[in-house]
Design a binder for these strands. Structure first.
Lengths: 189, 189
DNA sequence: TGGTTAAGTCAACGAAGCTGTCGTAGTTAC
DNA sequence: GTAACTACGACAGCTTCGTTGACTTAACCA
């Protein structure tokens, strides 16, 4: 049986016995199934969301790792290399490989830190900003459609659940990024 | 300035001018910032969610690719290889490498299809089910906490937005999986 | 019978993670 | 002012997991 458009026609899934259970277990089963469904949700949404930018990346010979770096440098202009490492949770070597190409191709600029001159503060060049925006636009379409169809209340729920899934440190980062977006003139340090 | 707990203390993010704009542009800016925030949400939530199972995988010498295969075989007992390929969106070679080890280590069983004897239908062995459950439990903790803190309404919103982000074919799959969970005795084919 | 399909397999490659070590320059603490 | 620590860059080598392309076997189907 061919599968023309990627739509799957799975065979019987009724192998697993689902015998009658005491009261309350049904509720437990629903919770379980809900969690399983969430695994699926995260996999598919992430897969297709990141996929959206791949076409552009490929024609430039870049990968997703480059996109992630561009994204976080764009959102945190002047970020130090060590802080970027902490966000991406990769090693120095993995980032170095990516940063080297981004700097060489003129998408990212490095500047010596003024407070601490050991630091190399990273910013997007104009062409880096332009590229990041192109990549973002693809993902934006998807998000916009999803947000529109789901409605404002659903978006708030989405935000809260996603926050709950991530680490405490990531939540703290989100808080700071949000505060910075509201108060762009504040200078905490 | 060291960064003891992974909490970032980013430097000034006020480099980008945010001049006064005509009425309505503020709203547009909010939308934009909302989309940017969603990129962050997806990255961090996915990163930390998948990370949760890594400890167990590592001590068994398996990778995330193995976990994904276990997950989808577990949720679709008797799935054909081609259908699994379509779900994971990887090539035959990538899956073969993973499946070979899973079968060799006794986590996955292959059975010849009865309707179509070319097919190798995949199921989890008891030990495969046990492993998948162990991996799932780690992720479940995170989800459970997130769901509890966010509330039932938020969970529904989460579900709707995530569905909106993924491809149409993935949405169709989710629908079928959900229907199958409600009607475990149905035999569509 | 002959064309298509499902799955497995070989070879080769590429992207993107990882470890460990080292050097240099700059900061900080004693 | 020296000594210890830190930020960053770079080298070597490795692993996981994705890719392409070509080919075989077995089974289905018209």
């Amino acid at each position: 049986m061919p599968d023309p458009k990627g739509a799957l026609a799975l065979e019987s899934r009724a192998n697993e016995a689902k015998p009658h259970a005491p009261a309350g277990a049904g509720l437990l089963f629903l919770r379980e199934e809900e969690m399983r469904g969430a695994q699926d949700l995260l996999f598919f949404a992430y897969r297709d969301f990141t996929n959206a930018a791949d076409v552009i990346l490929e024609e430039l010979g870049l990968g997703r790792a480059h996109h992630r770096a561009l994204h976080f440098i764009g959102r945190n202009p002047g970020i130090a290399v060590g802080d970027l490492l902490g966000l991406l949770r990769i090693t120095k070597q993995s980032l170095a490989r990516v940063l080297t190409t981004l700097v060489a191709q003129g998408y990212v600029a490095q500047a010596q830190g003024r407070a601490d001159r050991r630091q190399r503060l990273l910013t997007l060049t104009p062409s880096g900003q332009a590229l990041e925006r192109r990549l973002f636009e693809r993902q934006r379409e998807r998000l916009l459609a999803a947000y529109r169809d789901a409605g404002a209340g659903a978006v708030e729920g989405f935000r809260r659940v996603m926050r709950g899934i991530m680490d405490e440190s990531a939540r703290a980062y989100m808080d700071r990024a949000e505060a910075a977006a509201r108060e762009p003139r504040a200078r905490p340090a």
